[in-house]
Design a protein around this nucleic acid. Sequence first.
DNA 1: ACGCCCATGTAAGCGGTTACATGATTGT
DNA 2: ACAATCATGTAACCGCTTACATGGGCGT
Lengths: 202, 202
Amino acid sequence: MSLRYALMALLRVGPLSGYDLQKQFQVSVGHLWHAPDSQIYPELRKMESEGLVVGEDQPRGERGTRRVYHLTDEGDQAYAAWMEGPLSYARAREPANLKAAYLESASPEAARAFLADHIRHWRGELEQWEAELERIDARANPMLQRRLAATHPRDHDRTVAFKRFGYEGLVDRARAEIAWAERGLALVDDLYGPEDTVAGHA
Amino acid sequence: MSLRYALMALLRVGPLSGYDLQKQFQVSVGHLWHAPDSQIYPELRKMESEGLVVGEDQPRGERGTRRVYHLTDEGDQAYAAWMEGPLSYARAREPANLKAAYLESASPEAARAFLADHIRHWRGELEQWEAELERIDARANPMLQRRLAATHPRDHDRTVAFKRFGYEGLVDRARAEIAWAERGLALVDDLYGPEDTVAGHA
DNA sequence: ACGCCCATGTAAGCGGTTACATGATTGT
DNA sequence: ACAATCATGTAACCGCTTACATGGGCGT
């Protein structure tokens, strides 16, 4: 239910073609709310049918066209309503914690592999988000630049500060997941004895 | 895709009727993986059709029946395969962080309300999970008691330790969310000036 | 007799995933 | 000429949500 608001957040700074929107999405708001292009195109059509955006077919070369989407007043109001209203929270559904709670039924090797993989996954996410934080601080993200160019300089610090704040939450999350899984590895050592090192084959 | 493994984790300690399973689910593994009863009954039927469980209709009173589910060998193996294999991770899709990153387009009041609500939500979750941690430490959860009764005393510490570990991750998460949102409230004060207190109407 | 709990679902719809499908344009 | 990338989708399926639906059993 949040995809459309993520899309509108981008369209609010100016019209974009479906393709450009999708590309910008992947390197900006897509870090916060993932969506593949195969979901974005249909969602735009659906939003158009609901009057939130209008699509304008523009010629491209001889035969090609590209569809440029503009946010409508109605879309702007829907976005504002989402921003002003409460968020609904989904109940917990955490596969990693679920599995962790029953690790006594896994082999020690599988338990270690699971935890190592958890660390690997969240380290990867952490890198992405930290890199994005740096781009935000440097005001280097193209979408952010467009956004700042479209707003009064007086509001720039606010815009940057909130963007930073949103990503900081993800960074905190990733760090917490990594720390948790590291404690898990120590716990496995405690319960089963330290791992035979890979080098210990001889 | 994890629901069936959550159900099998319970059925592994012994057969349960759909109803009992659903009830036990809500007060144990349901904290880690939420599912309403309207999802559990059909999932059990589906698992039966795949041979993971068998359902046995037992008479109840004169006309009533209850369907008692047993884990099959095939189900046990599927559970083991899940435990031994890797978990697949979903890409980030965090409505709260998404909204946070665009809070400059909300009124200060809405921003504060959002953050306060975030804190309220996660405090509620935190309470649940901390209460569950206490029940784990006291070995007071009925499902945990059944589980321990069905396993060798030598393995009890492990079982309890991993269950604790799983919930600790959720507790960490909740604390991180609360700390983040509190920083957010401070940030809003910084950016817009401190809130007029409710008492400040005079 | 009544109400609460036991007991088990169905149906419609939504958001998302995965895989597939097609063709035009631009730069080398 | 060819490749990369621009550009836009469709179709099938899956897990989950929400609301609705029904009836028996048991304790007071």
